Computed example of a mutant assay.
Amino acid sequence: MTVAAKLKFPYRYDEVGSLLRPAKLKQARADYHAQKITQADLTQVENQEIRRIVDKQVALGLKDVTDGEFRRSWWHLDFFAGFNGAEFFEPEHGYNFHGEETRKGGIRFTGKIAYNPDHPFFAGFKYLNSIVPAGITAKQTIPSPSVFFPNKDAEVFDNYYDGDFDTFLDDEIKAYQQTVQHFYDLGCRYLQLDDTSWGMWASFSKQTLRPELVPLAKAAVKAINAIVDNKPDDLTITMHVCKGNYDSTWAGAGAYDPVADYLAQLHIDGYFLEYDDERSGGFEPLKKIADNRRDQRIVIGIVTSKRPQLEKEDFLKARIRDASQYVPLDNLCISPQCGFASTEEGNRLTEDDQWHKLALVIKTAKSVWNVE
């Protein structure tokens, strides 16, 4: 196992997690589902492609790297289906995005939600951590617990708890706590929670959160803080607040104002927030978060992962200056607004576009913060 870099994360230039799946990997996955190759054959292709993109991330200069989520079909469903008591299924419809319906996918609770010591994500992280070079940190991403609160719109169905949300929440928290500890025992020191709930709840509201969403927001704060407060001291946990990312489309739009008070209550070490276009609103809500935790870093996602056009460095620097009116510059970082492929379909960019975007993030951050 390599030694993790002794750096503060999120780093000044960082990435959200998912990367575009190469054609070779897509073909191997299709061949596996068509029973033309074995699981071992598919894993071999995954390993080869993960090693390739890890080498590329390191060559670009990133201080932390991911496996691109190359072993997943969905950014979230694959993870929760790995718990005991949950299963993946295909509902009648996909998710409603802006101008597009997604591929079908959902989760059902079929028993008590519980930690699975053989969760497939563990083997994936173990491989990633074994191939990162010395001085580079392997970053693991998993969906946030609030993503799996029973919700028809999110295609998460309770077929076990009979509406007893409190018992479900307690079980979910325990399963997450044990899962996070297992990642840590495997060498993970940088874990990111990906959370669409806050972005969607903000989209459904105006200046304040709609009353019917308040209990869910409070439950999310309880769950996330219970998980983070249980972590080892040298494990960094961040959160990416997402508004939907599928085939370059989006699901939510609106400023963070309605959820800022709740985000400020979370005990996480840093935020990744989407700020690539007008859907995100202004930087003003960041002041509430920054005022609550002086040591917390806020990553503004000012380079879009949805379109191939490359932003201008001067434009990005102006956005950083704007954000620094509400958050001290020393607490800011930058990244792409989201991953490049939250599902295996990926966004409408080429792999070269993806690397150019990440290179621009790195170049801009080095200039602004004078870091290596």
Rank of each mutant, 00 (worst) to 15 (best):
M239V: 11
P215G: 04
A217V: 07
M239P: 00
A253T: 08
A253S: 14
G244H: 12
A255D: 15
V214G: 10
A217L: 08
A251T: 08
A223H: 04
P215H: 06
A255G: 11
V214W: 13
Y256G: 03
D233E: 14
I237E: 12
T249S: 15
V228Q: 10
P211M: 01
K218T: 07
D247M: 00
G254F: 07
A260E: 11
K222L: 09
V228C: 09
M239Y: 01
A251I: 06
W250Q: 05
G254P: 04
N245C: 06
C242F: 06
I224W: 05
G244T: 10
V221W: 03
N245D: 14
L213V: 11
G254R: 08
Y256I: 04
D234Y: 09
M239T: 12
A223P: 10
L235M: 15
N245I: 06
V259F: 02
V228H: 11
D233W: 00
K222V: 02
A217E: 12
L235T: 10
A255I: 02
I224M: 07
I224L: 05
E212F: 13
P215K: 04
S248W: 00
A260I: 09
P215Y: 08
Y256P: 00
P211Q: 01
A226G: 12
N245W: 06
P258E: 04
V214Q: 14
S248N: 01
D261R: 13
I227V: 15
V259L: 08
A220R: 04
Y256V: 03
I224N: 09
P232R: 00
N245E: 11
K231F: 01
D257W: 05
D261S: 15
P258H: 05
A226R: 10
I237D: 12
H240R: 09
V259E: 11
T236E: 08
D257V: 02
I227L: 10
A223F: 06
A220L: 06
L216P: 00
M239R: 02
C242M: 12
P258C: 05
D234H: 11
D234E: 12
K222E: 11
M239I: 13
D261C: 03
L216W: 14
K243N: 12
D233F: 00
K243F: 03
D233Q: 14
D261F: 00
A217F: 10
P215E: 04
A220G: 07
D229W: 02
L213H: 14
K222P: 01
I237R: 13
L216Q: 13
N225W: 04
A253K: 13
G252N: 14
A260N: 12
N225D: 09
P232L: 01
P211A: 02
A226P: 02
D229N: 15
T249D: 04
S248F: 00
I227R: 06
S248A: 02
D229M: 05
N230W: 03
A223D: 05
D233R: 10
D247F: 00
K243D: 04
I237V: 15
Y246C: 02
D261Q: 15
I237S: 11
P215D: 04
S248C: 01
Y256L: 15
A255W: 08
N225Q: 05
V241L: 13
D247C: 00
P215Q: 03
V221M: 06
I224H: 08
L213W: 15
V228T: 12
K243V: 05
V214F: 12
A217P: 06
L213D: 14
D257Q: 13
Y246A: 01
L213E: 13
K231V: 03
